[in-house]
């Protein structure tokens, strides 16, 4: 099932309390961590909470989520693949 990257971006902005940025300004392929949005390890953990809360996806080991956290696009694909139907 496809999920809207626009909606996902809004959720990321809200959950990570990013300021002065709109979903439109986030590129689907831009790296989330390091450069890009400048997210860090605490944000990764906050994204884990978001995935469970909003999409029912439980990540036990943060390493498991790492490839999915590369960009909004990879995150959307990960959610589409893992989301309980």
């Amino acid at each position: 099932m496809q999920i809207s990257t626009h909606e996902l971006k809004s959720k990321v902005i809200e959950s990570l309390k990013l300021q002065d940025i709109t979903p439109e300004q986030i590129d689907d392929d831009a790296p989330l961590f390091g450069t890009g949005l400048g997210l860090d390890s605490i944000d990764a953990l906050e994204l884990v909470v978001l995935l469970e809360k909003d999409y029912g996806i439980v990540i036990k080991d943060i390493e498991e989520g790492r490839p999915a956290f590369r960009s909004v696009k990879t995150l959307a694909e990960f959610i589409a693949a893992k989301r309980p139907q």
């Binding site: 605490i42 944000d43 953990l45 906050e46 884990v48 909470v49 469970e52 809360k53």
Partner: peptide, 12 residues
């Protein structure tokens, strides 16, 4: 008590 548990950011 929310799904996903309390916020790791807030704990920090």
């Amino acid at each position: 008590s929310g799904v996903g548990g309390p916020s790791p950011t807030l704990f920090a």
